[in-house]
Amino acid sequence: MMQQIYPQTPHSYRYELNKDLHFAAAHYIPTEEAGKCARIHGHTYFANVTIAGNSLDSSGFLVNFSHIKKLIHDRFDHGLLNDHDDLFGSHVSGEMHGEASYPTTEVVARTIAEIVQAHLDETANRPKCIQIFLRETPSSYVVYRPGGTESHG
């Protein structure tokens, strides 16, 4: 993967891990406001997952890089995002103040953060996913920061 500079979020954690990965997936946004994006089309998504924490696990990892890849790449690569009814769909999420959960780049970035954090919450050292950078096209990307930019250190 090409060397990339990502926006940074300030924090006071001792460790910060970044994992770059990509996955090819199709999606559609089932609303008239989406224009052409209402039709099925695909992207090669490039993601950067930023994880931070103060302590390492018993193996000396903040989190194993391969676990992050498996969580995202293995789930979404060469699939139709809309088929993940448990994550995306035409339903409205009450948690997000009535926002639809269509697989827009914004929602996919938020969902990646939630998937990663759910995994991290099961680890002994409990690091935090503090940023997702998700590039949908060469000229379009989203940065999602769970909980904003506040420090959790």
Rank of each mutant, 00 (worst) to 15 (best):
residue 2 M to N: 10
residue 3 Q to N: 13
residue 6 Y to H: 12
residue 6 Y to C: 09
residue 6 Y to D: 10
residue 7 P to D: 03
residue 8 Q to H: 11
residue 10 P to C: 00
residue 10 P to E: 11
residue 14 R to V: 15
residue 14 R to L: 15
residue 14 R to N: 10
residue 18 N to D: 07
residue 20 D to E: 15
residue 21 L to S: 02
residue 23 F to Q: 02
residue 23 F to I: 00
residue 24 A to G: 14
residue 25 A to Q: 06
residue 25 A to G: 06
residue 26 A to S: 15
residue 26 A to T: 08
residue 27 H to G: 02
residue 28 Y to Q: 10
residue 28 Y to F: 15
residue 29 I to G: 05
residue 30 P to S: 02
residue 30 P to V: 11
residue 32 E to N: 08
residue 35 G to M: 04
residue 35 G to P: 12
residue 37 C to P: 01
residue 37 C to A: 15
residue 38 A to N: 13
residue 40 I to G: 06
residue 40 I to S: 08
residue 43 H to P: 03
residue 43 H to N: 08
residue 46 F to G: 00
residue 47 A to T: 10
residue 48 N to T: 15
residue 50 T to L: 08
residue 50 T to F: 09
residue 51 I to M: 04
residue 51 I to P: 00
residue 51 I to Y: 05
residue 52 A to Q: 07
residue 52 A to L: 02
residue 55 S to H: 12
residue 55 S to I: 15
residue 56 L to N: 03
residue 56 L to A: 06
residue 59 S to I: 04
residue 60 G to L: 07
residue 61 F to W: 15
residue 64 N to D: 15
residue 65 F to W: 14
residue 67 H to L: 12
residue 71 L to A: 12
residue 73 H to W: 13
residue 74 D to W: 10
residue 76 F to S: 04
residue 77 D to R: 06
residue 77 D to Y: 09
residue 79 G to P: 00
residue 79 G to W: 04
residue 81 L to A: 01
residue 87 L to P: 03
residue 88 F to W: 01
residue 89 G to H: 00
residue 92 V to R: 05
residue 93 S to N: 15
residue 94 G to H: 11
residue 94 G to F: 08
residue 94 G to I: 13
residue 95 E to M: 04
residue 98 G to H: 09
residue 100 A to V: 08
residue 103 P to V: 03
residue 104 T to V: 01
residue 105 T to N: 13
residue 107 V to G: 00
residue 108 V to K: 01
residue 111 T to Y: 02
residue 114 E to W: 11
residue 116 V to N: 04
residue 116 V to D: 03
residue 120 L to N: 01
residue 120 L to D: 05
residue 120 L to W: 03
residue 122 E to Y: 01
residue 122 E to I: 07
residue 123 T to D: 08
residue 124 A to R: 02
residue 124 A to D: 13
residue 125 N to A: 06
residue 128 K to D: 08
residue 128 K to W: 07
residue 128 K to L: 14
residue 130 I to K: 01
residue 131 Q to W: 02
residue 132 I to N: 03
residue 133 F to T: 12
residue 134 L to E: 07
residue 136 E to F: 11
residue 136 E to L: 09
residue 138 P to F: 13
residue 139 S to R: 11
residue 139 S to G: 10
residue 141 Y to M: 11
residue 148 G to V: 05
residue 148 G to D: 03
residue 149 T to Y: 08
residue 151 S to Q: 04
residue 151 S to L: 08
residue 152 H to G: 11
residue 153 G to L: 13
